[in-house]
Design a protein around this nucleic acid. Structure first.
Lengths: 330, 330
DNA sequence: CACAGCATATGTAACGTTTCATATCGCAAG
DNA sequence: CTTGCGATATGAAACGTTACATATGCTGTG
């Protein structure tokens, strides 16, 4: 009385439909097949509840329709947006996303790549920080926000340009005493260029631009100390602040308010990233928006591109400015 | 001059090592094998750069060492924490995580399940809202935060108990005029019980407890209107507020400050979730902490448990209270 | 009417594993 | 020295597909 527990196979469908195995295969691969055959196969498949076995298929074709996404974590709101968009972009093209988080640990990064390689994904999209990642050159790899070498395509936002844009906006809005604030990511990356872009604009105009760059710092306290030390007669030494990311900008805004300064009347503030979640939660700031969706789509596109002979080694996507209440819009 | 492009197989390793195919298989499955044989195989494998082909293996064994995680999104900080922890918990047991996001769309949820089923994962951990999900009963499924039926194990935090805990804390800290605030998730779920638990404590003591529950609301503005309407002579009608989650609590705190009230001196505030990221970004509030890591571990444990004959249909994990500056701690 | 030519279905041989029945080896006992 | 036994290595079969070479049926032409 033992039921046949095993899932139905193509062979079962072929028998049920009274056609050959190859015909069933064709139907499930969208290869032209006589109308009546197709119908019979489809009906038989539905009757049996047949689903293609992707392992058998993967074994034959060497394609798995899945890609790995390697990120330090997914709790950082920017990484979360990225994960979301990459996942959607891959799904849209029929690919599964295998998520691996590394917590910035180079060993974990390498382990992920090993695992992922061994598990035969079709490619990897990675936001990793190991200086020299040992990745099989036969495996398509796209790096986000970190340039490795000419043969590993890298997709990133125009961080330098974003810094410039922030500077130009502040100038346009009447600021003359700029400040750049950065809190250290644990690792080098393209985002370091934000400050460079910002400063370059003022340098070019022979204006002063102060920067406070914190490294490996957990707390925002040093910023508070710095800011309060720069208030004289209720007036801050700066009238335009560019923060390396939105999380910082929102904190700085709160600090400024606590220090009795008005934002944007006394000080204007621009962040970087364009974290939608913040707006959703009621935290707002004017910001340089990273085109996260395009970042994801471009990465996926590069990853899945058939012709891998001449891929760009660096794709730099344009950022945009979005007013968010911490600047004096006209 | 064409290089043999194909990855080396067990057959190649066997030839290189001068042993039989089956022996190589044993080595890679940790099945006892003569010491010298093992060494020869391992050396040969290293020489050739051999990696097991998980598709061939999956075809034979019907196990894939991967599980799917289905979430509405990964940008919500709570979901992000969950994704992170589930991913780690699975990785720890040698499983890959296949991430699918659904944006609360029932159709997408079903599509995910289809896809994931068809792609032969070993199981699914889902936080989904479709009332009756059509999931193959042969496929291990664990639901987080949403009870479906006795045969689908559900793991959730003790939401009711968490609400009670919040109420007891506020009472303990001297509050006598409680308020519960909720902003509507688009879907029913276990988290609805938070308010019930909170109210039950006051009801039991025959104290009044006001609740304001918003549904399908994008903005927090109604809360502001409500709160400001309840200020008389600079004094708020409430001295203890419980918010359905941390994001709301943080917003309410900001509102209260803007309305000229001091937190926690005039009003004490407790949130729910224990979003670590908020603290990291400098937003703080006292909160009922969900044991996210345990939630994840329990789910994974249930999912991968060998003996699936008598699984619990509901596992409810204890929450805890964490002071975070919006309550008057002793 | 026969037969070329085309289109379409058929069935078999891989793909790279695991598993299991069989072969081989070494050693102890008769 | 032979036999038997246990331990261990061997190799063929099977997993469920795809791809390709072959078979089949049809249409239209000489």
């Amino acid at each position: 009385m033992k039921q046949k527990e095993n899932a139905p196979t193509m062979k079962d469908v072929a028998r049920e439909a009274g056609v050959a195995l190859g015909t069933v295969s064709k139907v499930f691969n969208s290869i032209p097949v006589g109308e009546d055959y197709r119908r019979r196969v489809e009906e038989a498949a539905k009757r049996l509840g047949y689903q293609v076995n992707s392992y058998a298929r993967g074994l034959k074709t060497n394609r798995t329709c899945s890609a790995a996404l390697i990120l330090p974590n997914v709790t950082d709101p920017f990484f979360a947006m990225l994960a979301q968009e990459v996942c959607s972009a891959l799904a849209q093209r029929g690919y599964r996303t295998i998520l691996s988080t590394t917590a910035y640990d180079p060993e974990a990064e390498q382990r992920c790549i090993q695992m992922v390689q061994q598990n035969k994904v079709d490619g990897i999209i990675g936001l990793t920080y190991t200086p020299d990642l040992d990745v099989d050159p036969r495996l398509p790899y796209v790096s986000i926000d970190r340039y490795f070498s000419p043969c590993v395509p890298c997709v990133s936002s125009d961080n330098f340009g974003g810094g410039q844009l922030a500077a130009e906006k502040l100038l346009e809005l009447g600021c003359t005493r700029p400040l750049f604030l950065r809190i250290g990511s644990k690792v080098p990356g393209e985002s370091d260029k934000r400050g460079d872009g910002f400063e370059s604009v003022f340098r070019q105009r022979q204006m002063n631009c102060i920067s406070l760059r914190l490294n490996d710092e957990e707390s925002y306290a040093p910023f508070r100390d710095f800011l309060s030390s720069r208030i004289e007669g209720g007036r801050l030494a700066f009238d335009g602040i560019f923060c390396v990311n939105d999380a910082l900008a929102i904190q700085i805004r709160a600090m400024l308010l606590e220090l009795g300064l008005r934002v944007p009347e006394d000080v204007q503030l621009i962040g970087f990233d364009g974290i939608r979640r913040f707006a959703q939660d009621g935290f707002y700031c004017s910001t340089i928006v990273q085109p996260v969706a395009r970042l994801a789509e471009t990465s996926v596109d590069l990853l899945l591109r058939e012709d891998r002979s001449n891929l760009p080694s660096l794709v730099c996507l344009p950022v945009s400015y979005a007013a968010g209440g911490t600047t004096l819009e006209p």
